[in-house]
Write a protein that binds this DNA or RNA. Structure first.
Lengths: 158, 158
DNA sequence: TCTATATGGTAAAGTTACTTTACTATATAG
DNA sequence: CTATATAGTAAAGTAACTTTACCATATAGA
C-alpha cells in the first residue's frame, strides 16, 4: 500500500503541472473578465465576452453567419443568437447578400464602428498592463505560441 | 471618409492579433474538448471539464470546499455542485473535518483514485501529441508563461 | 460567559453561452 | 426539374457557473 500511495502522490503532482488545459481555462476567464469589466464602463453598451468574440472575424464588407460560425468554431445558431443581441444593441446589422438569396451579411453599424474602435483601446490597455508587469517579450511569445497551438488543433480533428 | 475607413481596417487587423483573450478562450475549449472526448471512452464515468478541474487541487488527506473554491477561482457553491455530482458518481466523498465542526474534507474514493490515475495518462498523452507536433520546448514554455500570467492576475485585483 | 461577527457550507433560482433537434428557403448538380 | 446541399431561423435543452439567502459552528472581545 505504501508504494501505491507514493505512486498516487506523484500522479497528483503530475496533474498539477500537466494540466495545460486548466491553465488555459483560468487564464482565459480572468483575462476576459477584466476586459469586459473595463469595457462596460467605457460606453453604455454592455457587451459580454460572447459578443466581443465576433468582432475580430468581421470584415468591413460584411461577413456571412456561416463563415462567422466556422471561424469562431461554434454553431451557426449560436452565432445567430449573438448577432441578434448585437443587432438589438444597434452595434451590428444584417443585410441580404446580393450574391446569394439565402445568405445574409453581418456588418457594423456606425455606432458599432465607433464602439469597436474604443474597445480596441481597452484591449491594448490591458495587454500593456500585463506587458509592463511580465515583460513585452513574454506577452508576444505567449501570443505566438497560442496561435501555433490553435493552428495545430485546427489541423488535426479529434 | 477614406481616411476613417483605413483607420478602421487597421483597428480590425489589430483586433485580430491583439486579442490574447480570444486566443486563450479558443485554445482552452479545444484542449479540453479533446481531453474529455478521449477520457470519456476510457472508463464508464462520464466526467466533464468542470469535474476534472477539481482533481489537481485535491490532496490525499482531503481538501476543504472553501480551499478548493479559492484555488479554482470559483464560488464555493459552484464547488459544492461539482463535488455533489462527483460524489453521486462515487469518485469523491465528503467527510467531516475533525479539526472544525463546520468544515468537510473532500477526498477520493478507491474507484476515483483509480479513475484519476487513468485520467493522468490521457492528459499526458494529449500533451505529448502536441509536444510532438509543436515541440516540447514550446509546450513547456507555454505552461511556464501561463503560470506567470495567472500569478500576475491573482496578484492584482481588477 | 455571552453576544457579535466571521467562517464553512447548503439551497434555490437566475444567467451566460452555448448545443441539439427540427425545421424553412434558396441554390445547384444531375 | 427533381434531389440534394447549403444558409439561416426557432425552440428547447444543457453546462457551468453566479447571486441571493440562509443555517451551523467557531472565535474574539466585552
Amino acid at each position: 500500500m505504501a508504494k501505491t500511495r507514493r505512486e498516487f502522490e506523484r500522479a497528483l503532482e503530475a496533474a498539477k503541472s500537466a494540466s495545460t488545459g486548466q491553465l488555459l481555462i483560468r487564464a482565459a476567464r480572468l483575462f476576459n473578465e477584466r476586459a469586459v469589466a473595463r469595457g462596460r464602463t467605457l460606453r453604455g453598451l454592455d457587451l459580454r465576452p460572447a459578443h466581443t468574440a465576433v468582432f475580430p472575424h468581421l470584415s468591413l464588407e460584411g461577413t456571412r453567419m456561416t463563415t462567422l460560425a466556422e471561424k469562431m468554431g461554434i454553431t451557426k445558431q449560436a452565432v445567430g443568437q449573438i448577432v441578434a443581441e448585437l443587432e438589438r444593441a444597434e452595434v451590428l446589422c444584417r443585410v441580404p447578400d446580393p450574391s446569394d438569396g439565402r445568405a445574409k451579411l453581418v456588418r457594423f453599424t456606425a455606432a458599432g464602428y465607433r464602439a469597436v474602435l474604443d474597445g480596441m483601446g481597452v484591449l491594448r490597455e490591458i495587454e500593456n498592463e500585463f506587458g509592463a508587469e511580465l515583460g513585452e517579450a513574454l506577452m508576444a511569445r505567449l501570443k505566438r505560441d497560442l496561435t501555433k497551438l490553435l493552428a495545430a488543433f485546427e489541423g488535426a480533428a479529434s
